[in-house]
Structure formats: C-alpha cells, structure tokens
Amino acid sequence: MEADFQVIDNYLMVKMPAEIDHHQSGAISRKADSFLLRDSIQGIVFDFEDTKFMDSSGVGIIMGRYKKISCLGGRIFAIHADRQIRRILYISGLSKIVEIME
C-alpha cells in the first residue's frame, strides 16, 4: 500500500501506508515535498489510521518535512496514531514539534 496525498484547504493530508520503513520513506518524502512546492501549504497532517508499523525512517520523514515547513510558519499534525506510534513520537522527541490529535 502506498501513501495517499490530498490537499484540503491549504493543508496537505498524507495518509500513511501500513508499514513505514526505509524502503518507502524516500518516496513519501519526495512526493510530500512536491506538494509543498506547488501549493501554498500551511500545514501537514499525517494520518496513521492504516499504519501498523513505523520505525525511525518515519521519524525522518516527519523531521524533514518539519524543517521545510516550519520556516514558512507551517505546522505538523498527527492523527489516528496508535499506542506504538505515539511511543515512537515521544521517544524521538517529535511530540514537541508535532501536534498529536485524536
């Protein structure tokens, strides 16, 4: 399953795949960046509804996007993150820059 991208009201919604590891992380980052360049994106919402697994490659995706969007005042959100993904966001310190929502 691949990540799905949609722009809704200047927010980029990224529906994350079932498994996020190094194998797919590059493609997700590149695709997200193409949206950031093309549209005037104010924020990115990562939707983890279908995600069963994520490792530090997912942290890299979020960190990289944060670096690009934060200098334009954009924000990053995470929705539908299960317990394990929350743990990863907390341990990596990403919870300080990502707004984790239900």
Binding site: G26, D55, S56, S57, V59, G60, I61, M63, S92
Partner: peptide, 8 residues
Amino acid sequence: ELERSGMG
C-alpha cells in the same frame, strides 16, 4: 542528507 533521523 537522506533524512535519517539518528534515532536507530
């Protein structure tokens, strides 16, 4: 440059 997070 590869966006490795350094968290491995």
